[in-house]
Design a protein around this nucleic acid. Sequence first.
RNA 1: GGCCCCAUCGUCCAGCCUGGUCCAGGACGCGACCCUUUCAAGGUCGAGACACGGGUUCGAAUCCCGUUGGGGUCACCA
Length: 590
Amino acid sequence: MSPPTSPTPHTAPNTPHPAPLVTRFAPSPTGHLHVGGARTALFCWAFAQAQGGRFMIRIEDTDQARSSDESARGILEDLAWLGILWNDGPTLTTPLGAIGAQSRPVGPYFQAQRLGLYNQYLEALVRAGRAYPAFESAQEIDVLRQAAVAAKKTFRYPRPADVVPGVFPAQRWSRAQAGEPHVVRFVAPSAEVVVNDQILGPVRFAPGEMDDFVVRKTDGFPTYHFAVVVDDELMGVTHVLRAQEHLINTPRHVALQQAMTRLDTGARFATPVYGHMPLIFNMDGTKMSKRDKAKAARKAAKDALTKNPALNAGTLAAATGLAETAVSAFLNAESDDVNTAEAVARHFKVGLPEIEVYDFRASGYLPEAITNFLALLGWSPGMKDAAGKDVEKFDMAFLAKHFSIDRIGKKPAQFDRTKLLSFNADAIKALPDAVFAQRLVTWAAEFNPAFAAQLAALPEAARTRLLAVIKPRCRTLGDAPGVCAFAMVSDQALAFDPTAMDKAVRTDAGRAVLRAFATALPGLNPTEPAAVDAWVKAHAEAGGMKMGEVAQPVRIALTGGTVSPPLGDVVAVLGTASSLARVERCLAQA
RNA sequence: GGCCCCAUCGUCCAGCCUGGUCCAGGACGCGACCCUUUCAAGGUCGAGACACGGGUUCGAAUCCCGUUGGGGUCACCA
């Protein structure tokens, strides 16, 4: 090993890796799976698939304060829902089988369970004179940092004079062993570090840029940098694809790798192949984050407060059942609490932007639409279809076959919800009717139980026809309840839109059409939608009317409004008796 | 501010590596029209970009340099 002060540049060599190729996605379980994380996981998965390698999940729960098991499970479930399945990692039992059950024996896959390992490697690093206990408190460091900022200088932790690279810091070690609170810092190399990034090309970091960063915190847990390097080595990770925000961290990881040897084989740590992909932003250019939900809800609340001076934090708290202190903190942007945001949004009936995979799931997006769309954020197949157009619609199997690092772009992408919505609408349209019905029922059972119950209450034939008819009218599964509403309300509870009634029904012509329809209805076969449509056409021709003059009064009578699926289908779903009852009732109000 | 990354239609992507076939192609959105019993769906057409300035070259969206702009990161978070 070259001494740390060597002028020899530290490089991350792009050496070919023998099989198996291993990629990993390593989320920290501090919330739901973010769409950005989902894309990272997708790319890691796709690359491993395309290369015949393995895709691994590791849970980075070294932040004791913020990590939770529920979050870890939620992230795994979201990944599974998206169809991003892992070869190695925690086992997740699903109706389709246990994911991760065939993992390589390199676990545990939760970092909090690997503390012993980190400590062994840490002690070896200290004994090699490449790390040392440091006893300044976080507060003391903070003072130094503030001073540096005030002086407009970059703060770098000054290495204590008694620390000599390559020499075991015996005194510091015994103080630490005696129980004195401390962190452990890495002796940063003074040479240049070059990262041969597979997406960005070689990235050079000048000597002296890196300071002696912390590798173990006061609480005894390793920092992200240390845990990642140890685990990637011990778990055989060969390729690291991650977001560009990690690019700056990479020299630290490379430096660590070059300072460390395996305890079992004595081999030097390998440096994996790195690729840093561009970030994903909102359409306004800001970083997508959970805070966007709070921002949206706050805006809705402020708008309402402006319009209605009687409203304030107190009345809002009463209306939403929240604590007044929580509401005012939220309104003053002192808190971005998600629960508060959601309660406020519900109160003002505004939708919150989907940020996490779970949000999109709840809104009725299809996993295949999300993964397709996400894949295009930073990657493209660069292929033309038979018509000579760019290929942009593809499934997971296509990705698994064609994904490659060299087609990952470099520039950050903005998350265009409108385009995602279009992809989702297309994905729904592509579903066979039976599959659509099954997906909708599954979705409703989880996210809209009331609608699920209404669907279940429908006769099977009517439900089948209804769902087939609404399919092209749904851009998300969440659109379905609205489109289906006419069929879910009882004949007696159906409300006729007053404006529509005045315009098309409360006229001599309108009433006459409804009477004629009521007369004809019992003779029309309800299972044959074409019969109703034919009647509309014939009646219009016979009366010298436009089709709309006949169809709209009937539509209003049957559905309460001017917008609905085709009349034949509406009658087919409602049945003759119900249709007749609605027409009679409408006539009574005309 | 230091360090690092990036730069083609409003947005996502193709083209750039291997300069000419590019007065730049596809998709979403937008506009118009067609279809049509409403709403969707479907079809046709259209508007819409190589950030700027220097080079190199017979020739640059493509190569080089600079400027400007955008972003990331500067934690005992990951």
